[in-house]
Design a protein around this nucleic acid. Structure first.
Length: 165
DNA sequence: CGGTTTTGACCAGCGC
DNA sequence: GCGCTGGTCAAAACCG
């Protein structure tokens, strides 16, 4: 299964780093608002303020003033908001589904995946946008300790923050 | 036959 | 302390 073959696959409409956020303060300027303008997720349970980008311009938004100081200390979290019909996005890693839940803020189900590589405890959550069911929100939790065939392909996108490690 | 998905149960954190 | 909610486990079913 390689959904990348579908031309509708926009890589990332929305990208967010949760903690250990690198500073990108210029996101309000470059919002070209080409297709969907600034999306605000105030109703989401996490209460982050959103910033969007066009297809290739990935924006990173962080929230500093939150009281998150638990297990997320060294757990980078990246959230994609992707327009896709398929919820399964093959990012080069092998994921094993281990759970499915109906969350309160969304009528859709949330799926839980774990990296099936041994020793790699990266998790990811996949759910549909509660407002736009054509969008899929994918949250990656952690950093892979191994390579993937897609590493070179994504090498220009550095998700790993140096402070996190 | 081995790895993955499914699905309900279980558990932990949080608010009241 | 209790109930709600999100996250995980694990056994059975499923699939190549």
């Amino acid at each position: 299964m390689t959904p990348y073959s579908s031309s509708e696959f926009i890589l990332s409409d929305y990208l967010m780093l949760d903690d250990n956020c690198v500073d990108h303060h210029q996101e309000s300027d470059q919002s070209q608002s080409t297709e969907s303008s600034s999306v605000t997720f105030n109703d989401a349970s996490h209460g982050f303020d959103g910033a969007i980008s066009s297809n290739n311009n990935m924006l990173v938004k962080c929230k500093n003033g939150n009281k998150r100081n638990k297990t997320e200390l060294e757990r980078p979290r990246v959230t994609f908001r992707t327009r896709s019909e398929l919820e399964i996005m093959d990012d080069g890693y092998k994921w094993r589904k281990y759970g499915k839940k109906a969350v309160k803020n969304s009528p859709n189900l949330r799926n839980y995946y774990k990296c099936s590589s041994e020793g790699c405890s990266v998790k990811k959550r996949v759910e549909r946008d509660r407002d736009d069911s054509s969008y899929v929100i994918t949250t990656y939790d952690g950093v892979h300790n191994h390579e993937s065939p897609f590493t070179s392909h994504y090498s220009q996108i550095s998700f790993v923050q140096p402070d996190a490690a």
